[in-house]
Amino acid sequence: MLAKRIKPMALQARRLYVETMFQVMGRALQAVSEVDRSVQEEARALPDGFLFEMTVMPNGPKLVVEHQGDGRFQYLTSEPPRPVDLSIQFKHIAHAFLVVSFQEKTSVAFANDRMLVDGDIDRAIRMTRILNRLEAFILPKLIAERAVKEYPQSLGLPEKVLSAARIYLKVATHFVETARAS
């Protein structure tokens, strides 16, 4: 009886967790593109105005970022102004949860057919590299190793801590600005 009552709450909590993580990741993508040169270099290859979406099928949570040019992303808090150029779609909220709770690496989720790519596959690979770089920065090494295929050996502790602090500060500021605006 108790289990029956708890289950819907657990599912609701899972959905809420994915939604929250998408909001954090979207803002963190914007922040890391302002902080890290490697990410900027990767992003510069994308056309200006390029819209990237990560979403859950059929109408689940989503994050959308736009390449503003010069390697900078902007997280969009409202509906995108035009159809997105690249969409990575999780087939189910459970699959998105596995990835954003770092139980399954992004590359393994691709290999396990947890998600679909709608758009140019070259750009999906590039965006995955950017997401990996972001995760290596903002997650403690032990957790980041569960999220990415291989933790970058070249990423030293001072660079990681400094960049992570700047990214988190920018994410927090963005959350506050969004709250004030609404």
Binding site: S107, D122, I125
Partner: peptide, 8 residues
């Protein structure tokens, strides 16, 4: 580096 197969 940008080829889709590199993911796997």
């Amino acid at each position: 580096l940008d080829d889709g197969t590199i993911m796997f």
